[in-house]
Amino acid sequence: MDLRLDPLQERLRDAVDAVLTRTGEPYAQLATIGVPTLNAPERFGGLALGLSADIVVNERLGYGLEPLGCYRATAFALDLLDGDDMPTEHLAEVVADLNKGARHAVVVGAPGPASARVASDGRLWGESEPLPRGDIGLCVARAVRDDGTVGWHLVVPETGTCSVESIDHFGMPASRLRFDGAAARPLTVSTAHWERALAAARIRQAALLLGMADRILDVARAHVNTRIQSGKPLVRHQTVAHRLATLMGEAVGWRLVLHKAAWEIDRGERCSTAEVLAVAAEHARLASRTALQLHGVRGMLAHSTTATAYRAIAVESVRLGTPADLWLEAASAT
């Protein structure tokens, strides 16, 4: 057993950190180090390096408090498409854009019941849940068909039948896709394939959340060491220090659990990850709530890092289901 990052993971970590210090649109900046391609399925021009590499990228995005949902949404959509034997040559142009970071893909209707509907003429109607902001080049949508069954569909958004509205999602920039009779091509996604894609999406999401938690705990640690009240730094109160020590120690454990799950998925030995996302979401929430408390009233200022993390972690912690639901799923899987 070797519980250190491997050299590829280390290089990737440093490269993502370096990219996040650059100015410019982070998604496009990430493309300059080949990130979308690194992890995309080979069929879509990617290197298929696997989740062990992907989680490093997502952890660092989390640490940078740059959730960059378009990155994970694209990976999820391509994983879903990868299961279908439909020819994808006609998507070559879009896929090239995805790999360049010029556009991204989205998955609609993954959590909860599907709300969009496909009419008998194959046209899609309805609207999406909040999605990452950016230029959407491809959409994989779960929708109710005319016969009442629910299935997956591929939509290449076109003006006239698809529109994107920029929205504010709990203070975070987001968008909503509206389908007004968009051409929707049915996809065959087997249960096993769906479970694999979902398991991978959850692992990426868990990595993002653990990275966000690390960041906000670092911010809290710095604050309690410098904020002096009654002649001593806040960290000198045991209740302050112990809470941070617990959370930081727990994070190490959860990260190892995450890396092990990714490693097992890459080896084809595992496909259920609900519990990994559940612990990451709960840990990140507790980290952001504790950090805010330890900042006192400053933590409540609208534009403070703590308030931003509180919002962002809230949104990301339920994006693929609430921890309560994930635990129930994990319980029924064992």
């Binding site: 959590p111 999602h169 929430r285 809230a314 949104v315 994006r319 289901g321 609430t322 309560a324």
Partner: peptide, 9 residues
């Protein structure tokens, strides 16, 4: 929030 999830947001 933990129970209602995105619906609440």
């Amino acid at each position: 929030f933990d129970t209602l999830g995105l619906e609440l947001l």
